[in-house]
């Protein structure tokens, strides 16, 4: 069997003396420490969730939502493309006849199990109608019970696109419900 010999690191005198690295590390730690307490406003970490990030791009895959047609009705035609593409098989659709003149078919039930979802975005890619999106900018999903993570059609229709300032999760103060 062919194999490669990888040289072991850490054999130089400086490395084996250990102290120079220790001093180097501690000086970074203390340097940052004094820099931070001298100007707390400039600390790059956020006090999440009191302070929300503002730099999430619109390509971020957050909580799903179902979109609307121009007349406000549901865009989804219950074609099951998303459920077919979903690697976690966490989209549960039941279709019914649609009688409002828009189309022939729509979902009666459209549930996503957010605990099973791997947030891959395949459902969004698969949808031929742009009916499902993950642009809600909701990145933290909280609930008290497992079954509360299974979100239904009505809820998904209420979730709005997150990239107008007034509807982003940051602007809503991090509220999920």
């Amino acid at each position: 069997m062919a194999f490669t010999v990888v040289p072991r690191h850490g054999n130089t005198l400086k490395e084996r003396m250990y102290l120079p690295s220790l001093i180097g590390g501690l000086s970074t730690t203390f340097g940052t420490f004094f820099k931070n307490i001298s100007d707390t406003q400039a600390i790059p970490t956020l006090e999440y969730p009191e302070i929300m990030p503002t730099d999430i791009t619109s390509r971020y895959r957050g909580h799903h939502r179902l979109t609307h047609r121009d007349d406000g009705s549901i865009r989804c035609v219950a074609c099951f493309m998303c459920a077919t593409a979903c690697p976690a098989q966490c989209i549960f659709i039941e279709a019914v006849e649609r009688n409002d003149g828009c189309d022939e078919k729509m979902p009666e039930r459209f549930d996503i199990d957010l605990l099973e979802c791997v947030f891959c975005g395949y459902c969004v890619e698969a949808c031929p109608c742009d009916a499902i999106r993950m642009d809600s900018n909701i990145f933290s999903i909280v609930a008290k019970e497992r079954r509360d993570f299974v979100v239904g059609k009505e809820y998904l229709l209420r979730v709005r696109g997150g990239y107008e300032p007034e509807t982003s999760q940051a602007a809503l103060g991090g509220e999920h419900e």
Binding site: V77, A78, C79, M81, D103, K105
Partner: peptide, 8 residues
């Protein structure tokens, strides 16, 4: 209209 066609 394959998305809403049962034959698809």
């Amino acid at each position: 209209d394959c998305p809403i066609c049962d034959q698809a």
